[in-house]
Measured scan of single mutants.
Amino acid sequence: AKPPKTVTVKVEVTNADGETQTRTVTLTNLPKDLKPGDTVTLPETGQTARIVEITP
């Protein structure tokens, strides 16, 4: 079996106070056609994050 493909992405997350924070997260099994501006759900927090940058 192939190991899951991990991708490092820079995302913007809005916290409970309405502040936008930029975080770098490593995600696995992202859709192939994901692009900056799309939103993903962070598995560890369940927060919705907007992708700023994808590092191949």
Rank of each mutant, 00 (worst) to 15 (best):
Thr20Gln: 07
Pro4Val: 13
Leu30Ala: 14
Thr24Ser: 07
Val7Glu: 03
Ile51Tyr: 02
Pro56Asp: 14
Thr8Ala: 05
Val52Lys: 04
Ile54Ser: 02
Asn29Phe: 09
Arg50Gly: 02
Leu27Tyr: 07
Ile54Pro: 01
Pro3Gly: 05
Arg50Met: 14
Val7Asn: 04
Val52Phe: 02
Thr22Gly: 03
Thr6Gly: 12
Glu44Ala: 08
Gln21Val: 15
Thr24Val: 14
Thr39Lys: 07
Pro43His: 06
Ala1Asn: 12
Val9Tyr: 08
Thr14Leu: 11
Ile54Lys: 01
Thr20Met: 09
Val7Ala: 07
Asp38Trp: 03
Ala1Cys: 10
Leu30Met: 14
Val11Glu: 00
Lys5Ala: 11
Thr26Ile: 13
Thr6Cys: 09
Glu12Asn: 04
Lys10Thr: 12
Leu34Asn: 01
Glu44Gln: 08
Thr48Ile: 14
Pro31Asp: 14
Gly18Tyr: 02
Lys2Tyr: 12
Leu27Gly: 01
Gln47Ser: 04
Pro43Lys: 05
Lys32Val: 12
Ile51Glu: 00
Pro36Cys: 07
Thr55Val: 15
Gly18Glu: 02
Thr48Arg: 07
Ala16Lys: 10
Val40Tyr: 07
Lys35Gly: 06
Asp17Cys: 08
Ala49Glu: 01
Pro56Gln: 12
Asp38Val: 03
Ile51Ala: 01
Pro31Phe: 14
Glu12Met: 11
Asn29Glu: 07
Glu12Leu: 12
Thr39Val: 13
Thr39Gln: 09
Gly18Ala: 02
Pro43Cys: 09
Pro31Met: 13
Val13Arg: 01
Thr26Lys: 09
Val40His: 01
Val9Cys: 06
Gln21Leu: 12
Pro4Gln: 13
Glu53Arg: 03
Lys2Ala: 12
Pro56Trp: 15
Asn15Glu: 06
Thr26Gly: 03
Lys5Gln: 12
Pro4Glu: 10
Val52Leu: 14
Thr24His: 08
Pro4Ser: 13
Gly46Ser: 04
Lys35Met: 08
Glu12Pro: 00
Val13Thr: 07
Asp17His: 11
Val11Pro: 00
Asn29Tyr: 10
Arg50Trp: 10
Thr8Glu: 07
Thr20Leu: 11
Lys5Ser: 13
Glu44Lys: 07
Gly37Ser: 01
Lys2Trp: 14
Thr41His: 08
Val9Lys: 00
Gly18Cys: 04
Glu19Cys: 11
Thr24Tyr: 15
Val25Phe: 10
Val40Gln: 00
Ile54His: 01
Thr22Ser: 06
Thr48Gly: 04
Leu42Cys: 09
Lys5Pro: 10
Gly18Phe: 02
Gly37Ile: 00
Val52Cys: 03
Lys32Gln: 11
Ile51Met: 01
Thr41Asn: 07
Val7His: 09
Leu34Ala: 14
Lys2Asn: 13
Pro3Asn: 07
Thr26Gln: 11
Thr28Met: 11
Glu12His: 06
Val25Met: 09
Val25Ile: 14
Lys35Ile: 05
Glu19Val: 14
Thr24Ala: 04
Ile51Leu: 04
Leu34Thr: 07
Leu42Thr: 01
Arg23Asp: 03
Thr41Ala: 05
Asp38Gln: 04
Ala16Arg: 08
Val52Pro: 01
Gly46Val: 02
Thr8Asn: 06
Glu44Thr: 08
Thr28Ser: 12
Val7Asp: 03
Val7Lys: 04
Val11Gly: 00
Lys10Leu: 15
Ile51Val: 15
Glu19Thr: 15
Thr20Asn: 05
Asn29Gly: 14
Thr22Gln: 11
Pro36Ser: 04
Thr39Phe: 15
Asn29Lys: 05
Thr24Gln: 07
Pro31Ser: 14
Pro43Asn: 05
Ala16Cys: 08
Thr55Arg: 11
Thr8His: 07
Thr20Gly: 03
Arg23Ala: 09
Asp38Pro: 00
Leu30Pro: 15
Thr55Ser: 13
Thr48Asp: 09
Val52His: 02
Ile54Met: 06
Val25Thr: 03
Asn15Ser: 11
Ala16Met: 09
Thr28Tyr: 11
Gly37Asp: 02
Asn29Arg: 07
Glu44Phe: 08
Thr41Gln: 10
Thr24Asn: 07
Thr24Glu: 09
Glu19Arg: 11
Ile51Lys: 00
Asn29Ala: 08
Ile51His: 00
Pro3Ala: 04
Val11Arg: 00
Glu44Ile: 10
Ile54Leu: 06
Thr28Pro: 08
Thr26His: 11
Gly37Cys: 03
Val25Leu: 13
Asn15Ile: 06
Val13Ala: 03
Gln47His: 05
Val25Pro: 00
Thr45Pro: 01
Lys2Cys: 10
Lys10Asp: 02
Val9Gly: 00
Thr8Gly: 02
Ile51Phe: 04
Asp33Gly: 12
Thr45Leu: 06
Thr55Gln: 13
Glu53Gly: 04
Asn15Lys: 05
Asn29Val: 05
Thr8Trp: 11
Leu27Cys: 09
Asn15Tyr: 08
Leu27Ala: 02
